[in-house]
Nucleic acid binder design. Sequence first.
DNA 1: CTTGAACCTCTAGTCACTAGAGACATTACA
DNA 2: TGTAATGTCTCTAGTGACTAGAGGTTCAAG
Lengths: 138, 138
Amino acid sequence: MFSIGELSKRTKVKVPTIRYYEEMGLMPEAERTSGNQRRYEKAGLERLSFIRHARDLGFSIEAISSLIELQNHPDRTCEAATDIATSQLEEVRAKIKRLKTLEKELSRISKGCDGEGVSEDCYVLASLADHNLCDHEH
Amino acid sequence: MFSIGELSKRTKVKVPTIRYYEEMGLMPEAERTSGNQRRYEKAGLERLSFIRHARDLGFSIEAISSLIELQNHPDRTCEAATDIATSQLEEVRAKIKRLKTLEKELSRISKGCDGEGVSEDCYVLASLADHNLCDHEH
DNA sequence: CTTGAACCTCTAGTCACTAGAGACATTACA
DNA sequence: TGTAATGTCTCTAGTGACTAGAGGTTCAAG
């Protein structure tokens, strides 16, 4: 039996976050001691590791909910799980693409000014004021 | 003189967002008609374009605040502006790096399961449950 | 048996908006 | 000039995924 603090240490998920996951229905309602403190079994630890790992990979709470629902029905096909993972992958790829465009633009803007002049002549500020100075759409 | 709706149309910033920017001090308090509606001059339009552009590039409201503060003092050196732009660029680069690791991992996980079996045997779910199945840290 | 760390619930704050209610203003057209 | 449609006003509350803090209770070690 683990206390919430022990669970926290083992999974690196902060204590209030564990309680939050319980409230959101990701973690099952924990058993309680006579003094109302949460106690977990190994299953609780595993569940929390699963959540943590999925969050680290950027899955939303909602997506994780669906994945857990699926875990609870081992006989269902896992099509939904692969769908969720695939769409997560697509989102990640889209974000990378967008960020790369931003990177180009920002790097161009940053290089354009050495920071030594006065702000009136600053290329950074000018670039932000005037989209026409940009190379790319964003 | 532009109404808030016109400003919105020209900048593609939604009306409530413009009001929000005013509340946050990014937009100056607009003049009002006798009926209490906001009216803007060209300067308001330019300011909003600046904000919009900076937001598109991922700058936080706080960072934009500093940039505007700087614009209002054309005699100051623009070191702060280049600093802000550079740190924004670094953040973007860090995000890209992290997302690329996630992409690798997610793509590996997604490929590992065709979605046709039952969830009990699903590689996606197994990978999320067990970090040891991962190739990379994340 | 005492002390101090860990735990409890509850509320409110974060960021950058977005949505909606209910009331008032403006504009276009007849 | 009347009216209808659209636009605008303020205010509150909600989003996602937590985080912080207050004020009180319980647990485990010595």
